[in-house]
Amino acid sequence: MVEIWAGLVQATKLIIDLDTELLAIVFLSLKVSIAAVITAALIGIPLGAFLGMRPPVSVRWLEKLINTLMGLPPVVAGLVIYLLLSNKGPLGPMELLFTPMAMITAQTVLAIPIITGLTLVAVRDKHKEIKDTAVTLGASQQMVIWTIIREAKRAIMAAVVAGFGRVVAEVGAVMMVGGNIQGNTRVMTTAIVLETRKGNFQFALGLGIILLIIAFIINSLLYRIQGEVRNN
Protein backbone atom coordinates (compact mmCIF):
# COMPACT_ATOMS: atom_id res chain seq x y z
CA MET A 1 0.00 0.00 0.00
CA VAL A 2 2.78 2.37 0.93
CA GLU A 3 4.54 1.43 -2.28
CA ILE A 4 1.49 2.23 -4.42
CA TRP A 5 1.15 5.57 -2.70
CA ALA A 6 4.79 6.43 -3.17
CA GLY A 7 4.51 5.31 -6.79
CA LEU A 8 1.52 7.56 -7.36
CA VAL A 9 3.35 10.56 -5.91
CA GLN A 10 6.39 9.85 -8.07
CA ALA A 11 4.19 9.31 -11.12
CA THR A 12 2.42 12.62 -10.61
CA LYS A 13 5.78 14.30 -10.27
CA LEU A 14 6.97 12.77 -13.56
CA ILE A 15 3.87 14.10 -15.32
CA ILE A 16 4.12 17.55 -13.77
CA ASP A 17 7.86 17.78 -14.54
CA LEU A 18 7.09 16.84 -18.15
CA ASP A 19 9.68 14.05 -18.08
CA THR A 20 11.16 13.88 -21.58
CA GLU A 21 11.12 10.12 -21.94
CA LEU A 22 7.56 9.94 -20.71
CA LEU A 23 6.45 12.68 -23.08
CA ALA A 24 8.17 11.06 -26.04
CA ILE A 25 6.31 7.84 -25.36
CA VAL A 26 2.96 9.62 -25.02
CA PHE A 27 3.50 11.54 -28.24
CA LEU A 28 4.49 8.45 -30.18
CA SER A 29 1.41 6.66 -28.87
CA LEU A 30 -0.86 9.46 -29.96
CA LYS A 31 0.89 9.79 -33.31
CA VAL A 32 0.56 6.10 -34.11
CA SER A 33 -3.05 5.81 -32.98
CA ILE A 34 -4.21 9.02 -34.64
CA ALA A 35 -2.56 8.06 -37.93
CA ALA A 36 -4.15 4.61 -37.71
CA VAL A 37 -7.60 6.00 -36.98
CA ILE A 38 -7.43 8.53 -39.80
CA THR A 39 -6.42 5.79 -42.24
CA ALA A 40 -9.12 3.48 -40.92
CA ALA A 41 -11.71 6.25 -41.17
CA LEU A 42 -10.79 6.95 -44.78
CA ILE A 43 -11.47 3.29 -45.56
CA GLY A 44 -14.17 2.44 -43.02
CA ILE A 45 -16.53 5.39 -43.45
CA PRO A 46 -17.05 5.06 -47.22
CA LEU A 47 -17.20 1.27 -46.93
CA GLY A 48 -19.68 1.37 -44.06
CA ALA A 49 -21.78 4.01 -45.82
CA PHE A 50 -21.85 1.97 -49.01
CA LEU A 51 -22.89 -1.20 -47.21
CA GLY A 52 -25.42 0.63 -45.05
CA MET A 53 -27.25 1.88 -48.13
CA ARG A 54 -27.60 -1.61 -49.60
CA PRO A 55 -30.51 -3.89 -48.76
CA PRO A 56 -29.59 -5.66 -45.48
CA VAL A 57 -30.03 -9.17 -46.91
CA SER A 58 -27.54 -8.51 -49.69
CA VAL A 59 -24.73 -7.67 -47.25
CA ARG A 60 -25.64 -10.12 -44.51
CA TRP A 61 -22.47 -12.23 -44.73
CA LEU A 62 -20.15 -9.30 -45.01
CA GLU A 63 -21.87 -7.73 -42.03
CA LYS A 64 -21.34 -10.87 -39.94
CA LEU A 65 -17.68 -10.88 -40.92
CA ILE A 66 -17.27 -7.23 -39.94
CA ASN A 67 -18.98 -7.85 -36.61
CA THR A 68 -16.66 -10.76 -35.95
CA LEU A 69 -13.62 -8.66 -36.80
CA MET A 70 -14.84 -5.93 -34.45
CA GLY A 71 -13.92 -8.31 -31.66
CA LEU A 72 -10.67 -9.45 -33.28
CA PRO A 73 -8.10 -10.08 -30.53
CA PRO A 74 -5.25 -7.58 -31.06
CA VAL A 75 -2.63 -10.33 -30.79
CA VAL A 76 -4.22 -12.10 -33.75
CA ALA A 77 -4.06 -8.89 -35.79
CA GLY A 78 -0.46 -8.50 -34.61
CA LEU A 79 0.37 -12.04 -35.65
CA VAL A 80 -1.05 -11.59 -39.15
CA ILE A 81 0.72 -8.28 -39.70
CA TYR A 82 3.92 -9.80 -38.29
CA LEU A 83 3.77 -12.66 -40.77
CA LEU A 84 3.11 -10.28 -43.65
CA LEU A 85 5.94 -7.91 -42.71
CA SER A 86 8.56 -10.41 -41.53
CA ASN A 87 11.62 -11.06 -43.65
CA LYS A 88 10.09 -14.12 -45.27
CA GLY A 89 6.65 -12.55 -45.62
CA PRO A 90 5.27 -11.05 -48.84
CA LEU A 91 5.90 -7.51 -47.61
CA GLY A 92 9.29 -8.34 -46.07
CA PRO A 93 11.33 -6.36 -48.61
CA MET A 94 9.67 -3.15 -47.41
CA GLU A 95 11.49 -3.59 -44.07
CA LEU A 96 8.64 -2.25 -42.01
CA LEU A 97 8.72 -4.68 -39.12
CA PHE A 98 9.61 -3.03 -35.79
CA THR A 99 8.92 0.47 -37.13
CA PRO A 100 6.11 2.89 -36.18
CA MET A 101 4.71 2.25 -39.67
CA ALA A 102 4.12 -1.40 -38.75
CA MET A 103 2.29 -0.34 -35.59
CA ILE A 104 0.13 2.06 -37.57
CA THR A 105 -0.70 -0.75 -39.97
CA ALA A 106 -1.70 -3.12 -37.19
CA GLN A 107 -3.85 -0.54 -35.44
CA THR A 108 -5.46 0.43 -38.73
CA VAL A 109 -6.46 -3.19 -39.22
CA LEU A 110 -7.97 -3.20 -35.73
CA ALA A 111 -9.86 0.07 -36.22
CA ILE A 112 -11.32 -0.58 -39.67
CA PRO A 113 -13.95 -3.13 -38.59
CA ILE A 114 -15.14 -0.93 -35.72
CA ILE A 115 -15.48 2.18 -37.85
CA THR A 116 -17.01 0.26 -40.75
CA GLY A 117 -19.47 -1.65 -38.59
CA LEU A 118 -20.68 1.34 -36.58
CA THR A 119 -20.93 3.52 -39.71
CA LEU A 120 -22.93 0.79 -41.44
CA VAL A 121 -25.54 0.69 -38.68
CA ALA A 122 -25.77 4.48 -38.45
CA VAL A 123 -26.15 4.92 -42.19
CA ARG A 124 -28.70 2.11 -42.45
CA ASP A 125 -30.92 3.77 -39.84
CA LYS A 126 -30.74 7.11 -41.58
CA HIS A 127 -31.12 5.59 -45.02
CA LYS A 128 -34.55 4.25 -44.12
CA GLU A 129 -35.88 7.51 -42.85
CA ILE A 130 -34.08 10.07 -44.99
CA LYS A 131 -34.07 8.58 -48.45
CA ASP A 132 -37.75 9.02 -49.37
CA THR A 133 -37.78 12.58 -48.07
CA ALA A 134 -34.67 13.58 -50.01
CA VAL A 135 -35.91 11.85 -53.15
CA THR A 136 -39.34 13.42 -53.03
CA LEU A 137 -37.74 16.85 -52.70
CA GLY A 138 -36.00 16.23 -56.01
CA ALA A 139 -32.49 15.35 -54.86
CA SER A 140 -30.21 13.66 -57.37
CA GLN A 141 -28.74 10.31 -56.46
CA GLN A 142 -25.46 11.86 -55.29
CA MET A 143 -27.30 14.42 -53.22
CA VAL A 144 -29.36 11.67 -51.57
CA ILE A 145 -26.20 9.78 -50.61
CA TRP A 146 -24.57 12.92 -49.29
CA THR A 147 -27.66 13.85 -47.28
CA ILE A 148 -27.80 10.41 -45.64
CA ILE A 149 -24.13 10.59 -44.65
CA ARG A 150 -24.55 14.10 -43.33
CA GLU A 151 -27.56 13.05 -41.26
CA ALA A 152 -25.50 10.18 -39.79
CA LYS A 153 -22.51 12.40 -39.04
CA ARG A 154 -22.76 12.34 -35.26
CA ALA A 155 -22.94 8.56 -35.14
CA ILE A 156 -20.03 8.34 -37.59
CA MET A 157 -17.99 10.67 -35.37
CA ALA A 158 -18.78 8.41 -32.43
CA ALA A 159 -17.57 5.44 -34.50
CA VAL A 160 -14.24 7.15 -35.12
CA VAL A 161 -13.81 8.03 -31.46
CA ALA A 162 -14.63 4.45 -30.46
CA GLY A 163 -12.02 3.23 -32.95
CA PHE A 164 -9.41 5.50 -31.39
CA GLY A 165 -10.34 4.27 -27.93
CA ARG A 166 -9.75 0.71 -28.97
CA VAL A 167 -6.36 1.16 -30.61
CA VAL A 168 -4.77 3.57 -28.17
CA ALA A 169 -5.35 1.12 -25.32
CA GLU A 170 -4.33 -2.11 -27.03
CA VAL A 171 -0.98 -3.68 -26.32
CA GLY A 172 -0.76 -7.04 -28.07
CA ALA A 173 -0.50 -5.93 -31.69
CA VAL A 174 1.93 -3.04 -31.20
CA MET A 175 4.12 -5.18 -28.99
CA MET A 176 4.43 -7.86 -31.66
CA VAL A 177 4.98 -5.72 -34.73
CA GLY A 178 6.65 -2.74 -33.03
CA GLY A 179 8.95 -4.59 -30.70
CA ASN A 180 8.85 -1.99 -27.92
CA ILE A 181 12.16 -0.43 -28.94
CA GLN A 182 13.11 2.46 -26.69
CA GLY A 183 12.88 5.85 -28.40
CA ASN A 184 11.55 4.24 -31.54
CA THR A 185 8.52 2.02 -31.13
CA ARG A 186 7.82 2.20 -27.42
CA VAL A 187 4.28 3.39 -26.78
CA MET A 188 2.33 3.85 -23.56
CA THR A 189 0.88 0.37 -23.31
CA THR A 190 4.07 -1.50 -24.14
CA ALA A 191 6.09 0.76 -21.82
CA ILE A 192 3.71 0.01 -18.96
CA VAL A 193 4.22 -3.72 -19.48
CA LEU A 194 8.00 -3.36 -19.56
CA GLU A 195 8.40 -0.94 -16.65
CA THR A 196 6.12 -3.03 -14.47
CA ARG A 197 8.19 -6.07 -15.20
CA LYS A 198 11.32 -4.16 -14.29
CA GLY A 199 9.71 -3.02 -11.03
CA ASN A 200 9.82 0.62 -12.16
CA PHE A 201 6.33 1.26 -10.88
CA GLN A 202 6.29 5.05 -10.80
CA PHE A 203 6.99 5.30 -14.52
CA ALA A 204 4.37 2.65 -15.32
CA LEU A 205 1.86 4.38 -13.06
CA GLY A 206 2.57 7.76 -14.64
CA LEU A 207 1.78 6.34 -18.06
CA GLY A 208 -1.22 4.51 -16.63
CA ILE A 209 -2.62 7.78 -15.30
CA ILE A 210 -2.16 9.48 -18.66
CA LEU A 211 -3.81 6.56 -20.43
CA LEU A 212 -6.72 6.78 -18.01
CA ILE A 213 -7.05 10.50 -18.65
CA ILE A 214 -7.11 9.86 -22.39
CA ALA A 215 -9.74 7.14 -21.92
CA PHE A 216 -11.76 9.54 -19.81
CA ILE A 217 -11.58 12.23 -22.48
CA ILE A 218 -12.61 9.74 -25.16
CA ASN A 219 -15.55 8.57 -23.08
CA SER A 220 -16.71 12.11 -22.37
CA LEU A 221 -16.58 12.79 -26.09
CA LEU A 222 -18.57 9.66 -26.80
CA TYR A 223 -21.17 10.53 -24.19
CA ARG A 224 -21.54 13.96 -25.66
CA ILE A 225 -21.86 12.76 -29.21
CA GLN A 226 -24.23 9.96 -28.28
CA GLY A 227 -26.28 12.27 -26.10
CA GLU A 228 -26.80 14.45 -29.11
CA VAL A 229 -27.64 11.44 -31.26
CA ARG A 230 -30.30 10.38 -28.78
CA ASN A 231 -31.78 13.85 -28.54
CA ASN A 232 -32.63 13.65 -32.19
Binding site: T133, G138, S140, E151, N232
Partner: peptide, 19 residues
Protein backbone atom coordinates in the same frame (compact mmCIF):
# COMPACT_ATOMS: atom_id res chain seq x y z
CA UNK B 1 -37.44 10.54 -64.29
CA UNK B 2 -35.62 13.05 -62.09
CA UNK B 3 -36.94 15.91 -64.24
CA UNK B 4 -40.48 14.56 -63.98
CA UNK B 5 -40.19 13.95 -60.27
CA UNK B 6 -39.09 17.52 -59.73
CA UNK B 7 -42.54 18.64 -60.85
CA UNK B 8 -44.12 16.92 -57.86
CA UNK B 9 -43.44 16.43 -54.20
CA UNK B 10 -44.85 14.53 -51.27
CA UNK B 11 -45.49 15.30 -47.61
CA UNK B 12 -45.61 12.35 -45.24
CA UNK B 13 -47.68 11.66 -42.17
CA UNK B 14 -44.63 11.91 -39.94
CA UNK B 15 -42.48 14.77 -41.16
CA UNK B 16 -38.80 13.92 -41.46
CA UNK B 17 -36.81 17.11 -41.10
CA UNK B 18 -33.08 17.16 -41.66
CA UNK B 19 -30.78 17.71 -38.70
Amino acid sequence: VLDMRRKMTMVFQRPILFD
